[in-house]
Amino acid sequence: AEAKKVKWKLAMTWPSTLTPFASPSLKVAKLVEEMSGGNFTIKVHGKEKHKAALAILDMVKNKQYEMGHSSAYYYKGKSISTAILTTVPFGMTSTEQYSWYYYGGGEAVTKKVFDKFKVNCYPGGNTGVQMGGWFKKEINTLADLKGLKMRIPGMAGEVFSKLGVNVTNIPAGELYTSLDRGTIDALEWVGPGMDIKMGFHKVAPYYYTGWHEPATELHFFVNQKAFKKLPAEYQTILTVAMKAVSADMMYENFDMSQAAWAKMQKDFPNIKVKTFSKSILDAMKKATDETMESYAKKDALFNEVYTSRKDYLKKARDWTEISEFDYVKTSQMVE
């Protein structure tokens, strides 16, 4: 029989030029087309085309686009449970999180959260540990955080505002200028690979290490009806392609970050890498747990996702500690 022709459209939260966030979509489109012998094509629209960056879930739900690429936590206004599918402060690393998703029950709870949107949600790339952000002055005590003006969205923003930080939301295009001129004192973005293009290192010398987004997951959304209508082999092609490009983005971002970090250090030797003090971290952890518990009390589904993640992290971390973590320490001993 002749192969069925299928034409899909995919909308991304990001502009088409934003590497590596745009990579999974562009690569999935290419892979799907090649694997289907040109019969299954996906047209990718960046933010510059649809102009509704944070409506990807809605648009996929309503089938204006069969597919979307975004991140679950942008939709926490619609369902609070999405907030912890992306990443959680002091939560799992990317390896731990992927294991949880594929082998530790993550896939099932994710499906529960997204079924009410009639959308399938798949991993779509991971940034790995994100940096804690760029600060214009050093943060030594909790008092230094009081009244600090910082751009930090999501759960971490909620945690920081509990510690007295003045959390503001400023559009990406205005961030550099705002930091430069002191409209804000600090901000967090991603990691060296993406931060370097924004130029923050030129205006804020303190680069704090991460705590709040240990494994930010991007997600593919696929309209359930559209997915069911696909011939079985196209379903397989799409699923495999999504899994491949999602891992691929993690490698791409890792590589960009190591290169950018080397360049930043060379061009701006004054950058000081800092880790928040124990007392600050304790307060952050406490505020994080309180925030999570309070949501878990209010929302049964949230509680289910939260518990699933928490239980898995406990098991996974025991292993991470004596494997990966210990190995890095061990190999450093002989350097």
């Binding site: 809605d58 942008y74 206004g77």
Partner: peptide, 14 residues
């Protein structure tokens, strides 16, 4: 959609 999902602000305190 916004009505049935009881959609609220994405930001805390919104």
């Amino acid at each position: 959609d916004a009505y049935t999902m009881d959609e609220i602000s994405e930001d805390p305190g919104g």
